[in-house]
Design a protein around this nucleic acid. Structure first.
Lengths: 220, 220
DNA sequence: GCGCCCTGTGACCGACGGGTCACTTTCTGA
DNA sequence: TCAGAAAGTGACCCGTCGGTCACAGGGCGC
């Protein structure tokens, strides 16, 4: 992100790399990794196919992993930035509501990234090649770990029931994923059969996860 | 399933078709649709490649859709069978606990089917070809609809809070999917970092969805 | 027992696309 | 201005696989 001190040459190189990744993201998200062709990526990035190999010697697969790594890094960064900027003492419920809202907003405005993760990351997690699967597993674990920290803190503070924090983090991710699938998979793209805005989505998820579905108890 | 009255010729034909689908399921789940080859499917089914086309004139894609259709049909059948055999008046919580347990058990003992759905169905839901995406969307909706019915009944009975039943059904599916991902994607296959058995998984999911995560209220 | 037809077969074909490399263009520093 | 280096390019190569089809063989009716 520190683009100031870098020599011009370097900056341009990074910008070209960025342009290639952007093009690849669009193509991969649209056609899927297997269905995408490097010719189309190159064309959309406005480079020759050979040039891609100057920037990604590993070819198609290296490009895919660069995209996936970026997507997971961004997710971890989002969680950590949010936690860092949220004042101490924020009520647990507000804290998590904001976090869910941020994550929903993040993916709703990065539709291609979400598609890529759904189409390819999930597939790679079950890859035969143990190395690939393990890499994906590690990326996912980093996100889970980032979420586990505030969950555990809330449990320590007595705000949340003491449950396996790791499992709760998985559940949170699962709900965000499920919500996004429901919202973005409606026929015709981003039209919404369920609630459409990040706020409403966060309301729904937070309310159910915190309060549960049951009626038979007092409610504020 | 009615194999009695069918003439022998028909039965054998269906059995062969079944064998081909089984082989294809194994190969597709392992290598992914794009990575799988019909040669391998044919070999594993112990037929010549040409024979596949006698049973699936549409080729590779028809085989994939047959598998996915079967998987969704089985899910709907599972839900409906469970609801049919569960006595009237079963407490809501017990009803849903059993349902979740059934679904978890179903997929835990059909690992290949789960992998296929994760790898391919999710990908197809975002397919460019609107027809393909719409088909998948319809399949998913049938499952959601089957789940929505008991949820709405429970809301009508006052056992669950009045919330958009459709959204709650999505959420339930999302949690089951998330749980299975967490459990089956551990490095090394089906080893479990979270809770491993359908019972424990159903306990966890039911408890959180019904009671919520908060501590600050009375609990039985 | 005979011949027709239905089913199975796998060698073959052609499209496709990932990756390469000899050549061109652009940039840099003297 | 120019030579050498660095970066860009796309025609080409070649392995791979979905799909085809001419032929084989076994079962069924006659």
């Amino acid at each position: 992100m520190e683009i100031g001190p870098l020599p011009r040459r370097e900056r341009e190189r990074l910008a070209r790399r960025r342009a290639m990744l952007d093009a690849a993201l669009a193509v991969f998200a649209e056609k899927g990794y297997a269905g995408a062709t490097l010719d189309e990526v190159a064309e959309r990035a406005e480079f020759g196919k050979g040039t891609l190999y100057n920037y990604f010697p590993g070819g198609k697969e290296e490009i895919l992993f660069a995209l996936i790594d970026d997507a997971y890094d961004a997710m971890v960064a989002l969680v950590e930035a949010y936690l860092a900027e949220t004042p101490e003492g924020t009520p647990t419920r507000v804290l998590f509501h904001g976090l869910v809202e941020r994550m929903l907003a993040h993916f709703l405005e990065r539709h291609a990234t979400f598609r890529l993760l759904v189409k390819e990351a999930q597939r790679l997690m079950f890859d035969d090649a143990a190395a690939r699967a393990a890499h994906l597993y590690r990326l996912r674990e980093r996100v889970i770990a980032a979420l586990t920290r505030p969950i555990e803190a809330a449990m320590d503070a007595g705000a949340l029931r003491r449950l396996p924090a790791h499992a709760v983090a998985h559940l949170l991710i699962g709900n965000i994923h499920g919500y996004l699938m429901a919202v973005t998979c409606a026929p015709g793209g981003v039209a919404a059969p369920v609630t459409p805005s990040p706020e409403q989505g966060a309301d729904f998820i937070t309310e159910i996860l915190f309060d549960g579905l049951l009626t038979d108890r007092s409610r504020p």
